[in-house]
């Protein structure tokens, strides 16, 4: 029986929350000075539903403003890793526009496409009732991820 192989590629799924920052910092501290790991910092741009923004002009405006914000956020996270000792060449950033009824599904699609062996996400810290009602991205990723390892950073 062949043993499963894992690559040394780590996908960190982020947004602008404090939990995402913690996830980036965790990776930065854990792998400080360790060579050969490749990091992808991923942000899924999930625009509001078309019903929320009535006109396409407003949607375009929202998107261009949001993209500027995301670029700054991703560069900040990249810098955290560089400050932690990562070689800039080992870090890539990616923001991708997807219509996501479920963000966890979109993150898993990205993982499946890139075939990174590890996903890192921050825990939102939802209450039980909040998670029951509105759902938790990290819980869903843990439950539905296949062929990869998931780290949920508290």
């Amino acid at each position: 029986m062949s043993e499963k192989t894992f690559n040394k590629n780590i996908l960190i799924a982020v947004d602008d929350s404090e939990n995402a920052r913690r996830a980036v910092s965790y990776v930065s501290h854990l792998f400080a000075g360790v060579k050969s790991f490749k990091i992808l910092i991923l942000h899924i741009i999930n625009p509001p539903e078309e019903d929320y923004i009535p006109t396409s002009a407003e949607k375009e405006k929202w998107l261009s403003k949001y993209k500027l914000k995301v670029d700054v956020m991703l560069e900040n996270y990249r810098q955290v890793l560089i400050d932690g000792g990562f070689d800039p060449e080992d870090i890539s950033v990616r923001s991708t526009l997807r219509y996501c009824p479920s963000l966890s599904e979109c993150i898993l699609v990205e993982q499946n496409e890139t075939q990174f062996s590890t996903i890192v996400v921050g825990r939102q810290g939802l209450s039980r009732s909040e998670e029951f009602l509105f759902g938790s991205i990290s819980s869903k990723i843990v439950n539905h991820a296949r062929n990869c390892t998931v780290w949920v950073v508290e």
Binding site: Y52, S102, L133, G135, S136, I137, K140
Partner: peptide, 15 residues
């Protein structure tokens, strides 16, 4: 009416 859903798109309907 609509609501900004999070991870469970239909959570509030089910509630």
């Amino acid at each position: 009416f609509n609501y900004r859903h999070r991870e469970n798109i239909f959570g509030y309907d089910l509630f």
